[in-house]
Amino acid sequence: MTPENALLIAGGIWWTIIVTLGAFGLGAALGVPICAMHVSRSRALHVVAVVLIVILRSVPPIVWIFILYFGIGSGWLSIGPVPAAIVALGVITAANMAEIYRGALKSIHPGQWDASHALGLSTWSEFRDVMAPQIFRVTLPSATTYLIGLLKDSAIASTIGVMEITYLAGFLASKQFGASLQIFAFAGALYILISLPLAAVARIADARLRMKVAQ
């Protein structure tokens, strides 16, 4: 592994992070209304949410990216690779975050928890001051774990030409066949390196939560 190669691949870290955080932000936000629909009293909204979640999760992420980039992008409106990757991974994240939020709501109100009260009828300030902090705390470990998974999923953005870590590694490997092994090994190590601090956050948050539950 030459320093030049290492530096070139490491240059992809920024796009990797932008795609990952972009998709996560989009998903974390969109997940809220989907979760609200899922737990709402309206049967229609509930069904829409369930169908949405099931469909989003049942098709591989790379297929969603292709649909956005090649499908929509080739016909209706032109969409760049980075927005395509962020939106595709973002909507999948939304489905998964909605489920994570729902799990958190359930654990906060075990037994006869009233969803409409939890989300609908309660006043905004009650939600902000009472519910939201609890939801955040309960959600933190699984959300962080999901974020780590998303970091690795962001590698598929390379297939539509986003110049992130995996793309640059593939590009380099195609120029220097003999060094392919080291190049991909280095790229893999980069992902692990980036996820280390996230994994630490997940572990600490999880331990805190367990302690709270144990008390």
């Binding site: 690795k152 590698a155 598929i156 995996t166 066949f177 392919s180 092994l181 991909f184 790229a187 893999g188």
Partner: peptide
Amino acid sequence: VEIGRGAPALILLQLAYYGLPYS
């Protein structure tokens, strides 16, 4: 285990396909 979980599957696939022949 940690490498298998920590590295993207896409990287592992390319490592096996493009990387291994040269070893």
